[in-house]
Design a protein around this nucleic acid. Structure first.
Lengths: 328, 328
DNA sequence: TTGAAAGCGCTAACAG
DNA sequence: CTGTTAGCGCTTTCAA
């Protein structure tokens, strides 16, 4: 790998001059510039980013920490963040934390030791104390972590209410809810929205709420139990789409006809929902816009040291598909 | 952020000594070590990795470049690489290239400028010329890129033959193939395996092979066309599972009963195949083992400068599920 | 308009 | 056993 010195001696100038043309800073004679650029291309020189980072303390690198890379929601989110950060000349890296506080802190430490410029994080487990260890700008995505942290989320509670109202309008008489892990902020919000709509119904039972841990397998198992114990259930609001797919699978294995016997509505709007049969009706989040906005806020905070917490809450929309729509 | 100097002065020693305890190298008095460690913890000192990297030219970072993070195959692969690299004290980063040569080279450049220690790459588009730009150890995964590059792949041709033989054994009389993009090495191998088994059949038509570009949407569209033009088709071997899901969707939209009217078998063995109804029979790759092995080879090449190309080819297995098995 | 030199934080000789 | 010092490759004063 050639260094700036090699370029300098080939061009017959000092390293300072090379640095100037590299960064387009200060004065440099047009001809000299030419010579330097020639040297750069004949040597195929690339500035060493590590040295740059060491000097100015920044790395032009932004990281996204997600809890579960196998849930398609997060790759979709990652695409958005990647696109936006790339457009702004940052290197984007994606890290998977398993929602494990240790892995999370490990990544945060490692990234900071690499002078990462900023972090976008989807987390439920991180604590205020750990957050204080973070010296670089940080934005919470999808979940709210702390009141003094910028965040990008959606109107979870309203979305949940919308889902349940919709099931009612379809004629569902007994509506259950498969929720996420209880420590996740959006689990609580979506559950609240559900309860808003059903808690005063005469048919409501607290056993209509079961957890699926935001995982396919758990959701499938939980649904089978639920439907066996409560065959009267004719509608399920599921707190995310991956679990929604699990609910459909469980219902089909029990021989239920969707949506005739059971209506199912998810939450997220991942493309997987449209790939399966029957396709999954859902409350759609503007995933791409959310990722983009989080990246935008982060970059803004990186550039502007004045600390201003921004909280952005996106609207959600009902996306009607086969798991509810063809009911007759 | 405290530096090694701060630690040194707090502990009343030189930076060299601090460095020694940090790296556990050379002799250092037990008591001194204690003092240094105390200073480290009171300051909450973390060594600056950038400075380390600048000095020794390594970053303890390994990157995986994948063509499509939205295809669940790659997150599954990434999990494996992540786990293994992490166990070996590397920071793992995941980069999405879209199989776009420009994005690919952009990442490779950026990573090298960050002194990345090694790269695992899944690519179809990269050329020998670009490969020569890469100065760090590199391992090809899932696809073969060049004869002088280590690689981890599977027995694609044999797997494909196995798939087709299996369809025949089930009683399929007209078997089609949905293939991947033609520039991908495993597309060719899987196609060859298919042709091995069908090209001499009296029923075989070249129009039984159509491309699905390894994408859900393309595969779904291609399948509809295929089945409308060739209603006699009663079995399809699909070159990957994501397309397999698309084939099932297309067939169901056409009102075909699976597997009674049409048997479908995919290739990959991603967990998605088991989440849908009917679940997708497939030729299963040992995804986790492959990712692990690629990481292992890479780390070996990082540590051992002696250049030895390793080519590892894993066996595949038939995973029988509902898209073929309940045929009667 | 250009160059010399200091220093970003760390490690590894080399002395002592 | 410990300290001094020279860089790793780059950017940025400060002088010229």
């Amino acid at each position: 790998m050639p260094t700036i010195k090699d370029v300098a001696s080939l061009a017959g100038v000092s390293v300072a001059t090379v640095s100037r043309v590299l960064n387009d800073s200060g004065y440099v004679n047009h001809e000299t510039k030419q010579r330097v650029n020639d040297a750069i291309s004949t040597l195929n020189y690339r500035p060493n980013n590590v040295a740059r980072s060491l000097f100015n303390g920044r790395s032009q690198m932004i990281a996204l920490l997600v809890p579960d890379i196998m849930n398609p929601f997060f790759p979709e989110l990652a695409r958005a963040v990647e696109d936006f950060t790339k457009q702004n000349d940052y290197t984007f890296v994606l890290c998977n934390t398993d929602d494990d506080p240790e892995k999370e802190m490990h990544y945060i430490d490692a990234l900071q030791q690499k002078s990462v410029d900023g972090i976008i994080i989807v987390s439920s487990t991180i604590t205020e104390k750990e957050l204080n260890q973070v010296k670089v700008p940080i934005v919470a995505l999808d979940r709210i972590l702390s009141s003094n942290l910028s965040s990008v989320t959606v109107r979870n509670r309203e979305g949940a209410r919308h889902a349940v109202k919709y099931l009612k309008a379809l004629g569902c008489k007994r509506i259950a809810h498969i929720c996420g892990p209880e420590n996740v902020s959006n689990t609580k919000d979506r559950l609240s929205g559900y309860l808003d709509e059903v808690k005063d119904m005469d048919w409501f039972l607290s056993s209509y709420v079961v957890t699926g841990e935001y995982q396919f397998d758990s959701a499938m198992a939980a649904t089978k139990n639920l439907l066996i114990n409560h065959p009267e259930i004719d509608g399920i609001f599921v707190a995310n789409d991956v679990m929604g797919v699990g609910v459909l699978k469980a219902a089909q294995e029990l021989g239920l006809r969707i949506p005739k016997d059971l209506c199912v509505i998810g939450f997220d709007g991942i493309s997987l929902g449209d790939k399966i049969t029957p396709s999954l009706t859902t409350i759609k989040q503007p995933i791409y816009e959310m990722g983009t906005r989080a990246a935008e806020i982060l970059i803004q905070q990186i550039n502007d040291p004045v600390f201003t917490v921004q909280r952005e809450e996106f609207e959600v929309t009902l996306l009607e598909r086969e798991s509810t729509s063809v009911r007759r």
